[in-house]
């Protein structure tokens, strides 16, 4: 396999892990975050520092990056998860930017705005593939258990979730922390693949990209998130000449999807064998509906 193709696959894999985190938070708990790139940055820098300054093996650095993101999400969640919808969103936005600026200021530790160089390349295709498989399995198992059901209950109707005995604060925190761990994981893999990281890589653009990918893939669908990430990571590679207009394209895609197909590509559905089997029937039904309307 050529190095280029391998690089693209690794990038897709890393993005999938970060997007899955946002998918759990936004698609299944209805908590919108525009700060997950901040958790990616924390994972990236923490793991990079562990590898280079403390000579830790890659696995330990990886876990260290995830743990660091988890701890910060716990502290942040305590402060902000009591807020309702849009207010919470704004705090995540603030958090993401704060993290980026803080990393720039902590020059002696993080290398500041010039970036952090000299990270050994440890992320291989195999490690990424294993990570993606693990991330998908954990997310799927988590969501298909009482934990995931409780998250969905919060998404659907928070007051009713409370009324059936779900400690909504605790489960929102769970969702937020899992999402941060995934972001930290992706960040650590990212740092050890590109070997050089700067705070600007984890800016608001990156955060919005993650959330937009989840919305395009469809809220409440893991397979939707995976498909959307793959397509959206591949597109700028395939259409190199227009790659600079990526964010423009994202913006247009979101507007189109929210107006034409508000549930996204796969909203609230998972791609499975039975779904594919039923596809012809669904398509037929869709056309019949159209005709009736006409």
């Amino acid at each position: 396999m050529s190095g280029y193709v391998e690089g693209v696959i690794i990038l897709i894999g890393i993005n999938i892990i970060a997007v899955l985190g946002v998918s759990i938070l936004t698609g299944f708990t209805r908590l919108f975050s525009f700060g997950n790139a901040g958790f990616m940055a924390i994972g990236a820098y923490a793991s990079a520092i562990l590898t280079t300054k403390f000579n830790m093996p890659f696995l330990i650095s990886l876990l260290g990056g995830m743990l660091m993101a988890a701890l910060i999400s716990l502290a942040l969640g305590k402060l902000t998860l009591g807020l309702k919808g849009d207010y919470f969103l704004i705090t995540t936005l603030g958090f993401g930017e704060c993290t980026r600026v803080l990393i720039e200021f902590l020059d002696p530790i993080t290398g500041g705005a010039r970036g952090y160089a000299g990270i050994p390349q440890k992320t291989t295709l195999l490690i990424v593939l294993i990570s993606v498989a693990l991330a998908i399995t954990v997310a799927r198992n988590l969501l298909n258990s009482k934990y995931g059901r409780n998250l969905k209950a919060i998404r659907e109707q928070e007051i009713a979730a409370d009324a059936v005995g779900i400690d909504t604060a605790r489960f929102k925190q769970l969702s937020f922390t899992v999402s941060a761990i995934y972001a930290g994981w992706a960040g650590a893999l990212f740092a050890h693949y590109y070997m050089f990281i700067t705070p600007a890589m984890f800016n608001l653009d990156k955060s919005s990209e993650l959330t937009i990918t989840v919305v395009i893939g469809g809220l409440g669908s893991l397979t939707g998130s995976v498909i959307a990430t793959t397509v959206l990571t591949l597109l700028p590679e395939v259409l190199r000449s227009v790659a600079n207009y990526r964010m423009l394209f994202y913006g247009i895609a979101v507007v189109l999807i929210i107006t034409l197909r508000p549930n996204g590509l796969m909203g609230y559905k998972e791609l499975s064998a039975s779904w594919i089997k039923n596809l012809p029937i669904q398509v037929r039904r869709m056309f019949r509906c159209r005709k009736e309307v006409a």
């Binding site: 059901r149 969905k152 659907e156 109707q157 009713a160 005995g165």
Partner: peptide, 21 residues
């Protein structure tokens, strides 16, 4: 609830499933 508050995107079974957590 006076104004019904179901988990409306979810299936009937899931609604009850959740409450049995």
């Amino acid at each position: 609830f006076q104004n019904i508050r179901l988990f409306s995107q979810l299936s009937v079974l899931e609604n009850v499933f959740i409450a049995g957590h």
